[in-house]
Design a protein around this nucleic acid. Structure first.
Lengths: 115, 115
DNA sequence: AAAATAATCAACCGATAGGTTTATCAAACG
DNA sequence: CGTTTGATAAACCTATCGGTTGATTATTTT
């Protein structure tokens, strides 16, 4: 999926989901291998319910998917979804760096001194 | 600066700063050119004070810097700071994609079916 | 059938994030 | 000087977020 096709809401949800350090740790864990809620919750000093909520946020944001296997609902990281985020950032960064390369920066500093 | 040298706090602040859509819009604006608080606030339906707070968050996170020119305090995007964020994400994504490429995914799905 | 396990739901709670209004400060300008 | 202008500080309000406890559902296991 091309970056430009990601809706603003999706992007928003993804950024918001990644803002929490616990959720980032969950993502880092899931980048190694899929895992169930119980497995994910084990290393954290918070309740399983809290982790369950975090996982719902990640799923809602499209960053993870879940399969079903009996009572277990393993979580899988969706690496492609992370591209929405890096895509947005890289876009801004490239625009800014292009500007620098064109030496507009020098002109801008001079322009600031003007009325 | 290498990605691994970014402190957890810096990373946290950067992710948190980017979680807000207004702040992302400010970043997008600043990727085009530096701007003052008044200029930045103009297109938004919120007060200048609110925008000023957002800018402080971005500055605290190291995503923007500010110069001084009389009463004006223009904001400049720091494109390098954005690399802390994309760096973390790309790391997780690469780990996950490597795993897929090794066809571990197939084994994992089989393993899920086991007791 | 009964008990254990995986996960979620529901209700609640304290902290904080984002917003406002009002007041203040410092530089520019008539 | 007095006043406008750019930016911030302080106090406050409200919604949301991250967390808890307790109960519930659905699947396994014995």
């Amino acid at each position: 999926m091309a970056v430009s096709e990601w809706s603003e809401d999706q992007l928003n949800a993804a950024f918001a989901a990644l803002a929490d350090p616990v959720r980032r740790a969950l993502i880092a864990r899931l980048s190694r291998s899929p895992a169930t809620v119980n497995e994910l919750a084990e290393p954290f000093p918070i309740t399983k319910q809290a982790v369950s909520k975090h996982i719902q946020v990640l799923e809602q944001a499209g960053l993870i998917t879940r399969t079903r296997n009996g009572q277990r609902r393993p979580c899988h990281l969706d690496p492609a979804a992370l591209e929405a985020v890096t895509g947005w950032i890289d876009k801004q960064r490239l625009i800014a760096e292009q500007r620098f390369r064109r030496l507009d920066a020098v002109l801008e500093i001079l322009k600031e001194k003007e009325p």
